[in-house]
Design a protein around this nucleic acid. Sequence first.
DNA 1: TCATATACTGACCGTTAGTCATATCATGGG
DNA 2: CCCATGATATGACTAACGGTCAGTATATGA
Lengths: 219, 219
Amino acid sequence: MAVAARREKERLQRGNAILEAARHLFFEKGYSATMDEIAKKAELGKGTLYLYFKSKDELYVSVIIEGFHVLERRMERELAKAEGPDEKTRAIYYAFVDHCLENREYFRITQYFLTEDARSKTSRELIDTINQASMRLLQYGVNAIQDGVASGLFRDDIDVIAASILGWRSATGILDLAVLDEEADSRAGTYGQLFDLAFDFLMRGMKKDRPSGRKGAGG
Amino acid sequence: MAVAARREKERLQRGNAILEAARHLFFEKGYSATMDEIAKKAELGKGTLYLYFKSKDELYVSVIIEGFHVLERRMERELAKAEGPDEKTRAIYYAFVDHCLENREYFRITQYFLTEDARSKTSRELIDTINQASMRLLQYGVNAIQDGVASGLFRDDIDVIAASILGWRSATGILDLAVLDEEADSRAGTYGQLFDLAFDFLMRGMKKDRPSGRKGAGG
DNA sequence: TCATATACTGACCGTTAGTCATATCATGGG
DNA sequence: CCCATGATATGACTAACGGTCAGTATATGA
């Protein structure tokens, strides 16, 4: 009796169809895309959406979480190519920045949810989901910097977690500007310079003071 | 005939009464505070609100702009107390950070408006109003750093504007975290450490390399 | 063929930003 | 004093939203 299994498969497919319609519309119109529109795009009745997602917010957050998965895969990919803590730290930082620039809609909708809706309105649960996903990705930065400390590239008196958060939040702060600015296209131009500066200052801050030392790869 | 003058005065008073009611409610409930609530609090009919402010968004932004004025006065005050570019840079940075922490509601509602509503929904005009106010305040940072370069404290190959933006955006990125976190109270604790780290790395990045020199105030 | 369970639907509800026909009030001439 | 005039204030109304639920359609297995 493969009925139950097929049912399950169909259920997943429907869920994905809704998610896809939602992604398109949230990307296009932001949070103000309506459930009616999404239902229409998914070729379903509005009520059906609520069989798969408890609320508009839950659907919205599902799209956000998608974005986190995309970013995590990218980080893994870039990390695999990098050698040594210097490159790894750089790989994580720019994987984040480039992901957000190339998929600015994911970034935009994520940032939205973390402001107003963090207020009483929405369930704490959804916020926590996003926070947990953030912490998971932050760990990549922590690990890279930790390696840097272990290998002697970075000072051993730095707070590894604080430094990671700083890198993350500096990039996010700049991304807010860059992504809001419709004109600016890629990492080139003014914003690219800013991301580089942020990374440069972060590295200078962490590296051991070796004004004249060589930069050989730390074994 | 002082009629016109009195009318004008009354008009201003009404406007302020509405603004005050709006501030209280936006602070308490965020953007989801309703125009009906604000009207009730201001002891006016809802329609009256629309004689003084074109839309809910315009009223909301008016409250935001209030916050910018408060911050600017604080910057002026702190700047007056500071001597030399090191202290001045520090004064501007912490005036910003402390203002946002002590008046987190102003920060919260500002950040909200700069995300979702930046999308097509609202008039570009309102966004621009906020951007102009931001640029005005950014100038305080630019001036302080410029002084630092002129006095030889900072390297003369740094991009003064980029460095200012970096300080601003790093602080904002951390503030997003700190202000969202209901628990965290003041500049003490984990977040305080982060703000300090951000400032420290910024200064290290800008200062001339003097690995062995003394840190005495550069006069 | 039909009873039952499962999945879908859209008319409906409460709520909200914004509008506008109407009501209220102050002013100054008669 | 009284009333005509214009300025100001009002809240019932509309359209649009998220969310609900009574009812419909479809699939299953006896």
